[in-house]
Write a protein that binds this DNA or RNA. Sequence first.
DNA 1: TCTGATACGTA
DNA 2: CGTACGTATCAGAC
Length: 878
Amino acid sequence: MTDSEKPTLLVVDGHSLAYRAFFALPVDNFSTKDGQHTNGIYGFLSMFVNLVKAEQPTHLAVAFDTSRHSFRTDEYPEYKANRSASPAEFTGQIPLLQEALAAMNVTVLTKEGIEADDILATLATEGAAAGYDVLVCSGDRDTIQLVTDDVTLLYPSVQGVSQLKRYTPDAVVEKYGLPPANYPDIAALVGETSDNLPGVPKVGEKTAVKWLNQWGSLDALLENADKITGVVGGNLREHLDDVRRNRSLNALLRDVELPVGPDDLAVQPIDAEAVRDIFARLEFRTLLPRVFDALGGDADEASTAAPTVAAPVAAEVDPAGARAWVDAQEGELALTVTVEGGLPARIGIASLDAAVEAPWSDDIAEALRDWLESDAPKVLTDAKPQVKALRRAGVALGGLSFDPILAGWLVRPSFPDKTLGDLVGRYLDEKLPEADPRQLVPETEGATPGQLGWYALRVTERIREEMPASVAAVLTDIELPTLGALADMELAGVAISHEKLSAFSSELAARADDIATRAYAEIDREVNLGSPKQLQDVLFEQLHLPKTRKTKTGYSTDAAVLADLQESNPHPFLDLLLQHREATKLRQIIESLDVAIGPDGRAHTTYLQTGSQTGRLSSTDPNLQNIPIRNEESHRIRAAFEVGEGYETLLTADYSQIEMRIMAHLSGDEGLIEAFNSGEDLHRFVGSRVFGVAPADVTPAMRTKVKAMSYGLVYGLSAFGLSKQLRIDQSEAKLLMTEYFARFGAVRDYLRESVAQARVDGYTETIFGRRRPFPDLASPNRVLRENAERAALNAPIQGSAADIMKLGLLHIHDQLITDGLRSRVLLQIHDELVVEVAPGEGDAVESIVRQRMGDAAELSVPLDVQIGRGANWDVAGH
DNA sequence: TCTGATACGTA
DNA sequence: CGTACGTATCAGAC
């Protein structure tokens, strides 16, 4: 083997280099939205990637310190004792950095009681002996001693971590005047301030080198210390022990026992998906391609890149051909319907081997109807719009067996994988061919419907591999059937009276104008009342009101703050501002509803099935899940939601206190279970227990307090938050919590236990097995960790409620169809459904709704369903 | 034209 | 220092 063919081993001191990066890069530019600092991680990885690309090592490892404690501190407790503790902002980055390196399949080494440099020394020594060219990268000068003909040190220069100086034996001699092996002797004499190792006073590098050259070795020098003249000679004689101690401590261990040797450190292909995951969490974008560039496609590794198989060319078929092709297939197929103007345009069908496609037509609909409507398993990517298009074309799709978008969301609810392209990137590490929309004559052809199906099937295989059984059950039993119900609800829409809305809108506009005029009079000028910035100027500069809660850009002017101000420093402007806000907000909502009314007189919302991290739906365009209900004018808005033509009435049904019922079920708290079984009003019951009075003697104030407490529990409320909410002393809030938990102790036990379990598992689970990961429960960043704890507390409760509502919804939807009723579900608002009832079906529908919602889950407390009917939503609601 | 911050509507 | 969402508006960056 010639020199040029020798393998190259690169070993890196992760700790010291990340630490340098931490101080070199501004924290402000390197923080995630959640507040996690990433400057050390970014700086290290950036340097690391450049290094790997430049040096092309065949073998690779990164070592870290475990703690400040090591065998050196055992020997000499003052070792490094002068160093201030690493800032928590730095130490918190280390686990994430290690996670990123693990995702890159870079070996990370640590050993209790051993410093990173000792690990480097050991690997360098073993590597050189085994015939490697060794590169050591460290920010600790002690590693100079490792340099030999086979070992080169890469040391960050003062300019920054990106500039590395190469120390070969010649370079060391040039800089220090002595060979690398003597460097620790110099350091022992001079001392190392940063390690709290004092040397001989007045002795610097020059003197040390002179002495060592003169006497040939440190031992010889120390033996002849009495022959050195002058003040420095005296200093040396007084500090002989210090020098010996320094020399003993700065010698790096070369025989640390490690679980791996150099041969085990061959560069591995990176785990592309894991790297994407962690980089997404760290919000690194530009670094991602650099990592793939440096570590991604190593041509020497045969197994590195999964061979990219070209998608089959989809054969264009006629209706008979399509039918014949489908009949010849076995098992699950992918179906892709392209939608134009809400109707099917083309259809593609794929297996893992082949694909066909055709333009949509009545003929193909008839040719394929049996198959489309049958239970034959079909994979559709983002199925809902396609299901809707088919339904508009008179085809009721059956056999939906998988939707990669839904499945990907169930597996990783926090990830923004909204397209097949995202999933192809994540799960296949390939790029879905997409036509560049900016080009009139596309250079790159996009995948055709048939090919999209082929990709969908391959992604499906991969997602199924990593889906736990409980999550797969949620997909099959809840999400896929819900998808069909949602498609019908969106198609149906809800009738809204434009007349009612526009009349109210004009009224509100006039009201807002009037309020604004009066507000301007109060401050003798006109400002934009919708601009928080201008309002700050008015409130705090002009009116000299006391500064309020701080925000990122100044001081808050939100409703709670304004109400507080009005109490402490009454001013007519404040009240007018609040009124103006209310009027304009209502008008906004009305306007957005009005423009959403279609030619059919109905608004068709879109339910985002993957829009939340807990399992809830969300609603957009328009959002029909946040229609006002609290104040007087909101009734007029709800009154505009009317029963449609050809129907008799609207029926609303909502679960009462479903989250507290789930809390009772999950905690098994006997008091809470009794509350729900007693038939007594929940808050009255709880209030009587907490305050030790008869239910009839629970005052409204008591009820308000326990109600806030009960609801707060579900969100991880603190005594501070409770006191703020109820405007009571923190001590009183604390007392309330104590009393509450004294009566309902199992609730507290459950909440504690569920977070502890989530910390162990890394995720929470609903009653039905829906999971939500919480990596931040392990974060050393307190803000991140406590946010995660509250979310983890809430997730199983909110998520179980969402599961139950979905089951109720889809059971009602299905039974209305099987019973041949025309009535239909229109809206879902988390714990409420709105149903449009066909003439004469009222009682049947009410019975179905009550039964199906009530039976959606078998809990240790009953599910109570409140039902109302009326010609509009305001009357039907209660 | 796009994005972040603020404010506010719902469960 | 209370969870989960979507939308409108302003202001500043591009």
